[in-house]
Design a protein around this nucleic acid. Structure first.
Lengths: 245, 245
DNA sequence: GTCTATAATCAGATAGAC
DNA sequence: GTCTATCTGATTATAGAC
């Protein structure tokens, strides 16, 4: 079962000599990672390392971990294959670097919501969070898609993802929801279900890009479509489908 | 982009001699396929072919098409690797056989909804369809998971899936919704968005099994959890989170 | 830091005996 | 129908020159 997914972990990363260890095991802050990435990226032109990272994000999102070939990443980044290994050593470490960078952006979109939105009532705050998440899912389908792909089974990658990122990300949502329930405007429905229901409702469209194009000839990338989805979701989440008399 | 995913289609199936061609290109009815499968399965003990099919469903659902190894399927089914190829010839044909069988079950759960539920009003009918879909997602996470995995990018597999199955599956939902909008009780929100919103909301929890266990220590397999999810979704879908005064 | 060339591994598929 | 043994091609990763 999990054995298969773990295959690549069998051979331990063998922390040998290697010029750079960008991903330290000491879990640097998001800020640190983001800055490091930016520094490298904006050095001259988008440096090779940054291009590899970008290409890798697209590939992992589209084809999943196992479906992605590092050679294809290299091709997309316009570099040769070995350079990928020079910068990231293994496919697994490259994956982690991708997630680190991608979720940094997700954090950026949500961090400080608590303080920034302090003056707004919990009801409006929740609406804002939902809309933000829809827009984020639309702008970075690769990130949510990645999480959908990984959330299915218990791999070391998932545990790392949850420990490091997911916990912090769902907190604003859950706290706002809890506030709403305390205040009485929100029904006392189970929060875990509400959370995942909302995440699924918000992001599924943007993961099923190809299917929507085939079934409804709908381009989920178009801004109008994105806003339509956000509007629909907020309306449903807050007031439901039934037209009140 | 798609080139990568299509790689395995480059070498054409080379329809040589081969004892059996279970998957004819003439698209047999679901009934035909289901019967054929059952015949083989219940012959004595669960025959090798049936065991391979079961193992393949689990593997494809868990690891996606590219992430699945036919040798692992063989191992799980307790047979040797070549037998997989004997029965299904190629990995791609095996995948199609799996989907054919799995979506046969989904059809079974929804076929005839139109007639069977004719006497029920469109509003109750929609509730029933949503609940059915939640339960189906819970009982067969592999099926929805499989569709999530394939819906992302435009492969020959996805086109086949949409043409052959998805169209028929979403029709009852869309028709009932349209009826509700005509009758006036349902708000005139865009149906495509409502459909995918609902599908995502219903099925995401059951795809993110491992993540829910890690974040909320919730076992989404438990019947109580399933019903709780169905209840929550129906309440949200129809009346929303806000407690009306 | 980036390349060419190559080693090592692994996966899908076939041949042919029983 | 099922097995053992094997081929072919593709993919990750490394060595070593520039």
């Amino acid at each position: 079962m999990t054995v298969q997914a773990n295959r690549r972990f069998v051979k331990p990363p063998s922390a040998t000599r290697h010029a750079r260890a960008r991903l330290t095991p000491s879990l640097p802050s998001f800020a640190t990672v983001a800055t490091a990435a930016r520094r490298t990226a904006s050095a001259d032109a988008p440096g090779a390392r940054a291009r590899i990272l970008t290409a890798a994000r697209a590939q992992f999102a589209e084809h999943g971990y196992e479906g992605t070939r590092t050679a294809e990443i290299a091709r997309q980044a316009g570099v040769t294959h070995p350079l990928v290994h020079y910068h990231f050593r293994t496919k697994d470490l490259l994956w982690r670097a991708v997630v680190e960078e991608a979720l940094g952006r997700l954090h950026a979109a949500f961090d400080g919501s608590a303080t920034e939105l302090r003056d707004v009532g919990s009801r409006e705050r929740l609406k804002i969070l939902v809309r933000r998440f829809v827009r984020f899912s639309a702008e970075h389908p690769d990130v949510t898609h990645l999480m959908i792909r990984e959330g299915a089974h218990d791999t070391p990658r998932l545990r790392w993802l949850v420990r490091r990122h997911v916990g912090a990300l769902i907190r604003p949502f859950e706290e706002t929801l809890a506030a709403g329930q305390r205040e009485g405007w929100a029904k006392p429905l189970p929060r875990a279900h509400l959370l995942f229901l909302c995440v699924g409702a918000a992001s599924y469209v943007f993961s099923a890009t190809a299917m929507l194009r085939l079934t409804h000839e709908l381009d989920v990338r178009a801004p109008a479509t994105i806003e339509a989805h956000a509007d629909t979701l907020v309306e449903i989440m807050f007031h439901g489908l039934v037209r009140e008399p």
